[in-house]
Amino acid sequence: MTAPCLIFLWGPPRSLSTAFLRMMLERGDFLVVHEPFSSIVVQGYFVFEDEPVADASELLKLFREYALHRPIFVKETTEYRYDVIDDPDLVSSGAHSFITRHPRSVIASHYAMNENVTCPEIGFEHQYEIFRMVWDHDGRIPVVVEAEQLMADSCGAVRRYCEQVGIPFISSALSWEPGDRAEWGRTSEWHREVAESRGFRSSARMHLVGVDNKSVLRAFYEHHLPFYEWMCSSCHSTSEEGEQK
């Protein structure tokens, strides 16, 4: 299998996507890009190769051009429905993969960071839209990594991911030195735990407010749970079929 030159990882906020990005940084074989499209939404631009870019489709074009010379890994959260989702070149631009985590954990963690979070910003509905677009375009179910598997068996989960997207597995990238990274400077307060970590781990934080004791969060949960379940059930069905073969 030819290794892809441009890999996207789409995930709801608080799904361990930044920890996964930290692992990709540790590999050293990709230019790693942190949340470019959300930067355009929040601050009006994203700086790529020292140039501010304000248009998502123009940024996608730059990624494609750059990837002709060096592999790129783009990690993006799905709290917004980005303009680039409507760009016909998006799904064919590279390999699209997804990271997810049970909505119960995502919602509690997101609320702890932002008590003004809205239902769309939880992110599973937007993620599923991209997932279906990629599936319909490629004719096969996209690669999905589950945060719970990363925490339980990081070596196995990352190895499977690498095999599925077609890149070498590098075991040494599963651990790293703690510290902030310039790549996530705009949102560094959201990444304290990753900055303090040495590898994939479960959160030590206990969230006192969640879907069981706050009605608005329960409504968010009931809205987003089907999208999470549809995506996971599709991937689990494919895995079971492969094992039977």
Results as ranks from 00 to 15, higher is better:
6 L>A: 10
9 L>N: 12
11 G>K: 04
12 P>R: 08
13 P>F: 12
14 R>E: 03
20 F>W: 02
21 L>W: 10
21 L>Y: 00
24 M>I: 01
25 L>R: 07
25 L>Q: 00
28 G>T: 01
32 V>D: 00
36 P>A: 07
38 S>M: 08
40 I>P: 10
42 V>R: 15
43 Q>C: 09
44 G>E: 00
45 Y>D: 02
49 E>T: 03
55 D>N: 08
67 A>P: 12
69 H>V: 07
72 I>A: 02
74 V>A: 10
82 Y>H: 08
96 H>R: 14
101 R>L: 14
104 R>I: 13
105 S>C: 05
107 I>L: 04
112 A>H: 06
115 E>Q: 09
119 C>T: 03
124 F>H: 11
124 F>I: 12
125 E>H: 01
128 Y>A: 11
134 V>K: 00
136 D>T: 12
141 I>G: 06
146 E>L: 13
146 E>G: 00
168 P>E: 05
170 I>T: 11
173 A>W: 00
178 P>G: 04
183 E>C: 04
184 W>C: 01
184 W>A: 04
185 G>P: 05
187 T>Q: 05
193 E>M: 11
201 R>Y: 06
203 S>T: 15
209 V>A: 00
219 A>L: 08
220 F>G: 03
221 Y>L: 12
222 E>N: 14
222 E>L: 14
224 H>F: 15
227 F>E: 05
228 Y>N: 02
229 E>S: 12
231 M>Q: 13
232 C>F: 09
233 S>D: 15
234 S>N: 12
236 H>D: 14
237 S>A: 15
239 S>V: 13
239 S>L: 15
242 G>Q: 13
